[in-house]
Design a protein around this nucleic acid. Sequence first.
DNA 1: TCGTTTATGTTATAAAACATAACATGAGCC
DNA 2: GGCTCATGTTATGTTTTATAACATAAACGA
Lengths: 130, 130
Amino acid sequence: MKEKELRRSLAVLPMGTVMKLTSLTARQIRYYETQELVKPQRSDGNRRLYSLNDVDRLLEIKDYLDEGLNMAGIREIFSQKQVESEKRKEEQRKSLTDDDVRKILHDEILRAGGLQGMSSQPTSPLQKPF
Amino acid sequence: MKEKELRRSLAVLPMGTVMKLTSLTARQIRYYETQELVKPQRSDGNRRLYSLNDVDRLLEIKDYLDEGLNMAGIREIFSQKQVESEKRKEEQRKSLTDDDVRKILHDEILRAGGLQGMSSQPTSPLQKPF
DNA sequence: TCGTTTATGTTATAAAACATAACATGAGCC
DNA sequence: GGCTCATGTTATGTTTTATAACATAAACGA
């Protein structure tokens, strides 16, 4: 699912398209940028280029505004979300590492015991002893 | 998966983006349009707007050209593909219909036999007798 | 209540991107 | 050599976008 992620973060949409997709005015979209709520890329000619993720973000902003939040509030929410997602990423990194450790240990045990075939799992690419 | 289909056929990409995504020149892209190989939408101001499907199509065209095909050949291939896809669609429509018929028949049999509970399937929304 | 801030509208001006059309051209073909 | 095909190049006009400045209604705070 890394391909999809890439597609969603490709900056390819010009202002006009984003306006239609979000029903926001150019003024609003640019203002939210000054408030650091979205950071579109720029083309060589300095045109703003948005990704699908940016569009989603703008729609989120709209929702929060409807709920009465102000720019500062939305900024705060977004920064929290980012912290959360980074935590999750770190969590996953750790858990993967633990998993590796487990595999390695398992391997050690097998070798120590002298190939008794407790498990019929094919050897993992991680092992490669020596 | 109907949502994805919709997203892929949304005409939102301007010429410049498509040029980068395909490594084709504007001249080429427009020429393929005169050859009816792609039919982008137009914005209010007459700008061409492409969908992700269009981009894929342009990449296909590029491949076929590299293989030595000419416009007529590519046009032919595309029209064949369309026929095929329509056949498959019709096939699916039919098969779904058959399935419905089967369910209805099954139901008829159940009622004729007087509720003997041969199957424990919950009644389908299709039945609604009378 | 008055002065501020906030979010957005409006207008002016310049530049970038795109459209159409016409002419140019090298490769392949008869 | 003349023709077609796919594409390049150039010219000209329109659309879209950028930035910036001024305007304003609503909310807010003193």
